[in-house]
Amino acid sequence: MTFPGRRPGEDVTALSDVDLTLASGDFVVVVGESGCGKTTLLNLMAGFSRPTSGRLLLNGEEIVGPGADRGVVFQRNALMPWLDVLANVELGLKLQGVSATERRAAAVRNLASVGLQDFHHHPVYQLSGGMQQRVGMARALTSDPEMLLMDEPLGALDALTRETSQELILDLWQASGKTVFFITHSVEEALFMATRLLVMSPRPGRLAASYDVDFSRRFLAERDARAVKSDAEFIALRERVLEHIRSGHVRDATDVGLRGGQDG
């Protein structure tokens, strides 16, 4: 993926040699420092931009633009302030022409699943940042996409809200069985959430390492986030990933099990 620069010859290659296959039901987390191309990769998957070379496939079909089969949760600014909470969550189905009763039922159900059943008619701009993000998640789920793309959805939240939101997202993931592609710059968050953790290195953005991890499943089984995050194995892996990111030159990605294949 190359972006045109200000002058010829100054083009910026944001992503290079990214070869990635997502398995259905996976919780894939991409972690890396700012400017490493994480969001570029998500925008390609969402269809907001087209690759300058290479292909992206979803269930064997080439991605040519955004669509309701890929729900997106943004870091901020993505709710419609002229609509109340319920109308925001209903909007996707309304745009798709679903009947009023059917879309209302889906929206009510998904708002309950994020704990906002008492806020149907609140203006979204009066909600806290954490609640706004929960509306964003309910909205993405209501269109019943095949996969959820989350672009640092918790990046703007305070530490405590962030932790409870992580647990909520894992619960939603378990309940819905959807494939999740989640971007963060927090290594701890990445390790806690992922079934598969991808480390990206910058300039040009490449997938530097891939880990299969099971801390999220451990949390879902035992319901004790602090115990998981303070586990010796968790801490050791966290330091190892941090070391990867800090060194910034992880060339031997194949050692750590980067699988080949097509995106999708």
Partner: peptide, 11 residues
């Protein structure tokens, strides 16, 4: 983000 969100909901 609002425009992208709408497209991702099938608009």
């Amino acid at each position: 983000e609002q425009i992208h969100a709408a497209y991702s909901m099938g608009a």
